[in-house]
């Protein structure tokens, strides 16, 4: 792969086209899944596809795959902070029912 002095590696257009096509297919899959009731799997499938699409965007369109090691580290830190937000919020949601509320 060629490298540009200022903008980093020059990614072949074919890669972008392939990623774009994959995103369109995954969007179609999300839409299709929305018409089928998968029960408890509804959210899992929708969020799973969304996560896959986000990963493609981050790796290829945002060039994280081609950067130095610091770049994936920064991305991982961002995701880790999201995990903090969700995990500590869940300490509330998962334990809120443990103690009865008077009158209920």
């Amino acid at each position: 792969m060629k490298t540009h002095p200022h903008t980093g590696p020059v990614v072949p257009v074919g890669v972008y086209v392939a990623v774009f096509a994959a995103l369109l297919i995954l969007t179609a899959m999300t839409t299709a899944a929305a018409f089928h009731d998968l029960g408890p799997m509804n959210n899992v499938v929708a969020l799973g596809i969304a996560a896959l699409k986000a990963t493609l965007v981050v790796l290829f369109f945002m060039h994280v795959r081609y950067g130095t090691r610091l770049i994936p580290l920064v991305v991982a830190a961002g995701l880790f902070w999201l995990v903090i937000l969700i995990a500590l919020s869940l300490t509330d949601y998962l334990t809120r029912g443990w103690l009865g509320v008077p009158g209920r």
Binding site: L88, T91, Y93, T95, L99
Partner: peptide
Amino acid sequence: GFLVWAHHMFVAGMSIYAATVF
């Protein structure tokens, strides 16, 4: 600073167990 936010919510009806953690 990112791990303590729910101490603003102790009386808001959140879980008492989570409140203890926070």
